[in-house]
Design a protein around this nucleic acid. Structure first.
Lengths: 334, 334
DNA sequence: CTGAAAGCGCTAACAG
DNA sequence: CTGTTAGCGCTTTCAG
């Protein structure tokens, strides 16, 4: 069954292709009568517009891309849901691309976008991303980019983030209030702003409370070496009594390390994590979390992108939209 | 910065568009010398083919769709990773669509695919899907569909599944061996084959062991009412001492219900769940799981789809590929 | 081996 | 209000 084209409808109704096209687009140029006839015929014949022909001609794809490190992450999964809701309401398609934390993947993906495949991009950069040329190149070819979560603030566009500094500061103070004296911070990348902000929130709180112990670890993207890095926390002398995880995927590893090294949470180690994870409450022990407003981040980022798409001359200037996170206190930090 | 087209390269090199096109496609018709020159110019000028023009002309999009109920599910997230790996190796793009368990969403999505937007479809149907017309319609327009996990076995195509009957049978036997006498089974849809298979595995095991107590609940897609349904298990007389969850997203709800109603796991209730969830080991108590080979299911499903795409006259017959699941025993069922 | 020409299906000027 | 014409950028006969 070959698909129905405008031409076939036109022939069927003895109209021109142009008229049919306009009628389906509900153009003011076409009489109501004709519109009705065309619509009816299109429905009956099962017409579905060829998106490739239409995109080629219109030079717009009605498609946005979401570029994220990983899909198996409750934060990103929820963000996507938020994005999808907005995109759907605008009649846009959403393409999801995973970088798997690889800069070269990310570069290849962005390169592809210079073809006009998508009208706009929502992006959270990889751990490895320490250059932005691949991003500016796309922006220069008039494809707007909006960042969320893992942003690059130096670029002239909107970043949707949460109050990382403040949350981290509050988290650190919370641990201090639970009489932690040696608090460690585990991040994933020294180059990411999000990580730097959380780290400085942590450090500021320590300074404010005159605590000299500082311990910042950087985990990567390999469970085995990350396991070792986390283990190292407890194998040296300055063994911490509290730890803040900046990365969701480290949760099982940390619980595993504590289990293996018989470090008891929370009596020996208080734990607190940035995450969005539905099961945090039912872990053993229940995990104190900093919940990011993932769904809303997705919505706001998408809305911002569509605003930029609406005006051809969107203003290109750096701007941040900050949505607050929320700390949920549970037993792991008690 | 407008994007570079074939025409621009052709002009630059004083060649015809056709020659440039063929050279870039590495056609045997073009001399090595010309190919080298064209490739070099294309690279220098930053040429990226317009996918819409190319798809329109070739009538193939080099794109496959993944249609799933939800992305925030560790099973589906891993399946996507498997699919992506294979798709990437074939130079295909992957479009992800979520039905959010809505049949009408699913129908709208499938409808769209009749436009030729994608060359093939990998699909796991929604809970609500009790008709397949929207699927056969797409298959009739020559877009091959491969099912995985939530399959419709009556359709003439390949289904990639796991041994649901056997796993469920084994799971039930396991609970019986732990001296459960009243085992409940919680599914999500009476129409889905996957659910029916798990249910019959459960029932067969009970029968085999001469246990007359049977208790099958069906949860939906609304946490609040699901919470009530799960609660009802413990509010009647025939209160179970074991339960098998067929659906990952019910895990937090069940733990919540047990917490609220002070049902202790595993002393009062042994629990076992179909899932793929990395944190199962660190729940309180650690959760016995039936792990599906999600990543491999994705890979095999994608490979099967590409095989179908390779031959224009792919044989349309029902076929199942079964990958085994694995039970991981933990404290929740001990 | 290279090029001219036709056209994928659609939309957008522009005439009528 | 409707139709004609001219492409969008690319691939593919088919001629040379």
């Amino acid at each position: 069954m070959p698909s129905v084209t405008l031409k076939m409808i036109a022939k069927e109704l003895s109209l021109s292709v142009a008229t049919v096209s306009k009628a389906l687009a509900n153009s003011y140029e076409i009489s109501e009568g004709t519109k009705a006839i065309v619509l009816e015929a299109a429905r009956k014949m099962g017409y579905i517009a060829n998106p490739y022909a239409s995109s080629l001609r219109k030079r717009r794809s009605k498609t946005v891309a979401v570029v994220i490190p990983e899909i198996a992450d409750s934060f990103f999964a929820k963000v996507i849901n938020g994005i999808e809701e907005v995109a759907l309401s605008y009649g846009y398609h959403v393409l999801i691309y995973m970088t798997h934390e690889s800069l070269s993947r990310e570069q290849a993906i962005m390169q592809d976008f210079r073809s006009g495949r998508v009208d706009g991009i929502l992006m959270s950069v990889s751990e490895e991303t320490d250059t932005v040329e691949h991003i500016t190149a796309v922006m220069d070819s008039n494809v707007p980019v909006v960042f969320f979560d893992r942003v690059r603030e130096e670029l002239p566009t909107t970043c949707v983030i949460t109050n990382d500094f403040e949350s981290s500061y509050a988290a650190t103070e919370h641990l201090i209030s639970k009489s932690c004296q040696k608090i460690a911070f585990v991040g994933n990348s020294p180059t990411l702003a999000i990580n730097r902000n959380r780290e400085s929130g942590y450090k500021s709180a320590l300074k404010e409370h005159n605590i000299s112990y500082e311990n910042v670890l950087i985990c990567g993207n390999d469970p085995k070496s990350d396991y070792k890095i986390l283990s190292s926390l407890f194998k040296s002398d300055g063994r911490p009594d509290g730890v803040i995880l900046s990365v969701e995927k480290l949760i099982p590893l940390l619980y595993q390390v504590c289990h293996d090294l018989k470090v008891e949470i929370p009596s020996q180690l208080k734990v607190l994590t940035f995450t969005n994870f539905a099961m945090a409450e039912f872990l053993n022990p229940p995990l104190t979390t900093i919940n990011q407003p993932a769904y809303d981040i997705g919505k706001v980022a998408a809305q911002t992108l569509f605003k930029k798409l609406a005006r051809s001359n969107h203003i290109a200037e750096a701007e941040s939209i900050v949505l607050p996170s929320e700390i949920i206190f549970r037993e792991s930090s008690n």
